[in-house]
Amino acid sequence: MTDVSPESWMQVRPEGLYCKPADAFVDPHRPVGRAIVTHGHADHARSGHETVFATAETVAIMRTRYTDDAVTGAQPMTYGERKDLGNGVTLWLAPAGHILGSAQAVIEFGGRRIVISGDYKRHFDPTCAPFELVPCDVFVTEATFALPVFSHPPIEHEMAKLMRSMASLPDRTHLVGVYALGKCQRVMAALREAGYPHPFFLHGALVRLTQLYEGLGYDFGSWQEVSKIDRSDRDQFRGRVVLCPPSALADRWSRSLPDPLPIMASGWMQIRARARQRRAEMALIVSDHADWADLLETARETGAGDVWITHGRVEALEHALKQQGIRAKALDLVGREEEPE
């Protein structure tokens, strides 16, 4: 009888989480032979792996972000499709609700099931498939916002705040800092649901990924690239939404806009000082991660007796889960950014 305790076949290696019998890593942060990639954010999806198991959307995102041949041995999968990784290991992907194509990696071996959530959220998001709960023996969770201070408001609430501001400050360009993958498209979709009727103006760095979403059938209404609009015509930005990457908020680029109001959309915006560090004058709390209540609730709902924690506010989640009688432990993974989003 072989030992099938989860620790024996799922291990922490310098490259990342490693499934030994399948000889495959999950979200490895350096090039490996076989990689299971949960989603397209850069600190999870690196280039240069020989074989990549991921959703078709994630593969498309990787090809957009890197070069076409950065993902040569791609094995695009649909949600729920079972793949035999050899040596008795089966892999399938379940929606994680984080961004387009994001998946939980469900790995089964020796009658046990480990679910690696990757990054996930349970709040509403029309730009990706909603999170699906998968019962399991071991749940490997993120902990980006794992502190009781994080309780994310509904996105409608934040969009209403933005709409109010545009009404009361019609002379100011509402310059919203968003990450290019996921956040940008979610904010656009949410603004459309809030009834924002005007074209969006996009910084060039947001264009390619937005077009990728459109190619996969998502519709954000009309939008234009800022650089394609003549300087003399930029007064039309006043009282409207211009989207840019966070780094451009305080950059020289923003000086060409009429009277910009720097706004940051991120889960970190719940902490005032973070917003001020960005010199944002308005903070929209828009998170693509689970908040404190959802992290605890989800871990419980999976019925997992063991919860492994990958990255974020690890200590708090470990402490709280242990108090609920769940065996929780922190995985010392390297290579995750301190504050991804």
Partner: peptide
Amino acid sequence: RMDPELFALSYDYVGELSETIALAWP
């Protein structure tokens, strides 16, 4: 009202007592 360990971690993270309480108040 709150587990002292979780409160300490929250305070440590937020860095400011009033905001920690404002956000985490049960």
